[in-house]
Design a protein around this nucleic acid. Structure first.
Lengths: 209, 209
DNA sequence: GTCTATAGCCAGATAGAC
DNA sequence: GTCTATCTGGCTATAGAC
């Protein structure tokens, strides 16, 4: 059997372990997840896991980092739209991503383990909230250049916008609570976008709003 | 020995257990916290803990509920101030509370365990974010009545305001990351308040902003 | 690299005396 | 109610054959 085939087999098992570990960690949490469960789900023996990863922490780190890499592509904005359309599109895409069960599970895991694994917390922030914020800031700069929005400090504005997007909807979903009547992604996005437009409308006469 | 003394002794031990458990859970997380550690810290035996609480889950629930009760008093607003002063005062108090290490630790604990303990998550939400939101909505209604702010939907406005307050500062602190230069509570509050005032300034001529 | 089997440990929960 | 001592189970990690 050629070496490449052996390597491919081994890499395939490694991937299977990573996938299984991801599922188990996300479902059960770090401490409650057992290496037995991961092995069973991956269809390998526990010893095989320890051949690929030094210990549970190492496996956990690999899982989180892999997920962070995957979410890096937050996509370009597309054609030139007006301020409302741009903010709405980006806002909805961000909020939909944030509310996905997997995203929430990773968020729970990383925040819970952050005090014990600060390096992992940093990697998560940079690949998640960090890049998201940078994307939004870039979009705001673009809107500012085109005279569609009064943009002084794009980073702070990105903070304000993402903060408004999350607001209560994110918290309730994170906690697994039922959403109250009349609470939807579209409405949350619309409220945030409206507020941004009202607060940062460009001043045609040069007067401050 | 009179009954009341025995009861008092027992209640004192119960409180000691709750305090110790709170510290251990907040420091180590739910799963990593051991009943031995709680017993040692409380100065009692493990058996005594099980005389007061049926199991670890029960103890955990009691700890979280006790903390929730304590934070219920979010205090009245005080004298009648203008919109900026009121928003700034309330905003700073809320953000300072949110960024306290203990508050963050409880947040990490509850969100991590929410999928497994939905009832606890609900209790946390109602005594924490829920009452905070209600307080702020009430304050907004007051500002609206006094003609200092254009308040249509106070609950949604409360969402937007608290969302902007948290924004990046909360996330970074939650993850234990160092704060970037020029990032402070005062600045975060000022940015959120400015945005609120710009977006929801009362319209003297009755025209919509 | 991969398996089976197991070492070694630690934590949650209990028994029984007082 | 409170203690000491212990049971029991599951977990991480490894040894050794292939």
């Amino acid at each position: 059997m050629p070496v490449s085939t052996r390597c491919a087999r081994s890499a395939a098992k490694r991937d299977a372990i990573l996938d299984a570990a991801c599922a188990v960690f996300l479902e059960q949490g770090y401490a409650a997840a057992s290496m037995d469960a991961v092995a069973a789900r991956a269809g390998v023996s526990k010893a095989t896991i320890y051949a690929h990863f030094t210990d549970k922490d190492d496996l956990f780190g690999a899982v989180i980092r892999a997920r962070c890499e995957r979410n890096r592509t937050f996509a370009p904005v597309g054609p030139a739209l007006d301020a409302r359309a741009t903010l709405t599109m980006v806002g909805r895409r961000l909020l939909e991503l944030l509310l996905q069960p997997d995203t929430l599970a990773v968020y729970r895991l990383v925040t819970a383990e952050a005090p014990r694994q600060p390096e992992l917390a940093r990697a998560f922030y940079e690949s998640g909230p960090g890049t998201g914020k940078a994307e939004i800031a870039r979009m705001l700069v673009d809107l500012g250049r085109r005279g569609l929005l009064a943009v002084e400090d794009p980073w702070r504005m990105a903070d304000l916008f993402t903060g408004m997007l999350r607001a209560d909807l994110f918290m309730r979903t994170l906690l697994g609570l039922p959403q109250p009547e009349g609470s939807s992604i579209d409405q949350a996005v619309a409220a945030a976008v409206d507020t941004m437009l009202r607060a940062f409308a460009p001043s045609p006469a040069g007067a401050a709003g």
